[in-house]
Design a protein around this nucleic acid. Sequence first.
DNA 1: TATTGTTATACTCTATAACTATA
DNA 2: TATAGTTATAGAGTATAACAATA
Lengths: 146, 146
Amino acid sequence: MDNNLNLLSTNLIALIVEINKKILDHKELFKRFPVPPSHVKVIFYLRHFGSSSVSQISKDLAISKPNMTPIIDRLLSNGFITKYEDPNDRRITIIEPTEKAEECFLAKKQYVRELAEKKLSPLSDTDIDRLNELTEEYLSILSKLN
Amino acid sequence: MDNNLNLLSTNLIALIVEINKKILDHKELFKRFPVPPSHVKVIFYLRHFGSSSVSQISKDLAISKPNMTPIIDRLLSNGFITKYEDPNDRRITIIEPTEKAEECFLAKKQYVRELAEKKLSPLSDTDIDRLNELTEEYLSILSKLN
DNA sequence: TATTGTTATACTCTATAACTATA
DNA sequence: TATAGTTATAGAGTATAACAATA
């Protein structure tokens, strides 16, 4: 039903706005965390996909290539990555995460989870259980999209 | 149960990530839309709360006061707002949205809804109906938070 | 030719300190 | 003094065009 799709897009936008306002404010997520957002994104990317070329990271994270250069430079000088030339293609630079990147990943994950828990804690146990069920079903439906 | 809260915060983060990846990418939302994000935010704010002082907007949108000045200047020169001095307190500048702001609000809303609809359209009618139910129940639980 | 990564440049957003005008 | 808004400045994000080196 086309009307239901229309209703869903409206509802979904409302949901995103509410989650953003009441639980995880996009700004708050990066405030008071010492590593800038773009660096965190690259660290998370490398953690998930392993060592990758600059172009690959750029494409997948939708960061334009010229903007990758200073990000990679600072990640390097801050010890989050190492880089080396691809032996099969000298144009390509491979970026490899360090142990410090893993520590940053864990710290950031913990930071975000604590923020979310603090905001959700006023809810009753019943509501928390129900939200868990709703979230899991939501995720299972969204997993059909790709 | 503390464990359920912990689980929920983890699930919720996964949900936000999935929605962001599969339906409404934060970057895509502002790409190819001619009015910059901060301007859109102010326009949406004024649409919802009506004419407001610069300080009020700054506080509610978490935009620092020095950063309001160029935003207000450009909104003014682009015809989205008018401004006048508060007759009761000459320190205060009142910002008033114009008809053009209302048009921008409607265009932006439409733009976002179309993006969401396009991304959700591969789902079956059953899944769309179910997502509508889940979203509404989700919103009703979140409405208890404040 | 096409691709990788860089340089140069410009616009936007964010944050802080110091200032002025008014209350 | 306290508050409203501005100026100045610096750091970070984003986008495009032009470039050198390599394939």
